[in-house]
Amino acid sequence: MKVTGIKDNIKLRINKDRIFLSLVVLFSVITVSPIVLIIFKLIEKGYKQLSFSFLIEKTPDTLQAMSAISAHEVIPGGIANGILGTFLMVALAGVIAIPVGIISGVYLYENQGKLMANLVRNVSDILQGVPSIVLGLISYMWVVKHITHGFSALSGSVALSIMMLPMIVRSTEETLKMIPQTLKEAGLALGIPYWRVLFGILIPTGFSGLMTGILLAVSRVIGETAPLMLTALGSTVINTNISKPTSAIPLLIWEFYNDPNMVDLIWSSSLLLMIIVLTFNLVSKQVAAQRK
């Protein structure tokens, strides 16, 4: 037996192991670094502009911005029109997508393995892959041209709701599948009609699962820009009428980008958008964790 040979071999193995470990660490760092760099950059560039008035005032016009810059002052005004518009449109999209999504999810859950349900599931998956600008275009054709006869918050919401739909359908189906079948049977055996079993037992039992899906869908669409460009258009005033053009935070970021005087506002607006999206993400993780 060559004892020394074995020793050499072990050394080689240890070295291989070290190399592999450092590669794993390196790639993990590469994965994490974008988000750290993004947040760092946004805070660095955007914190000056972030203030209470930034949240409650509407966007300044380009002249106000220009004079502020030439006087080396912070640009006045805020993005209240965008914040309100974003929440208005996302809420309205939820009102459309949540009931439809949950009911479709229930349908898929109750018809496992059936042809029609499989078809619906596949179509819903395909819908998830449709580029958001195409959804904006479709909403333009349906809502802007025929319902509101002009750019509107409603048309933006319709586009966003189509984006949310597949995620809610899937999360509803998966959540219901995880609830033990015997709970449903126990309800039915008490002579409770199916729809009351659904709303009184199954949905409350899977509430946090459904909530997780909804929150993730919301955080997914809250930063959407492309479909809103073709539908909500944007607005410089605070608007609460769903049939009128409405602003949104991502739309404002795009507008600021195109106006050399407003460039400073990009960072603070992006920072705020990032904070909102992260909050939704963290809350949905928390809700999901509570479930276990």
Partner: peptide, 30 residues
């Protein structure tokens, strides 16, 4: 089913409901 009670292999109280609500569930949900 209101005239026949059924009990299953595994205990399956409704997890979101209190003890009280579990007993009365048949009435409440009907």
């Amino acid at each position: 089913r209101r005239r026949t009670g059924m009990v299953f292999q595994r205990p399956n109280p409704f997890p979101t409901m209190s003890i009280y609500d579990n007993v009365i569930a048949g009435y409440k949900l009907n």
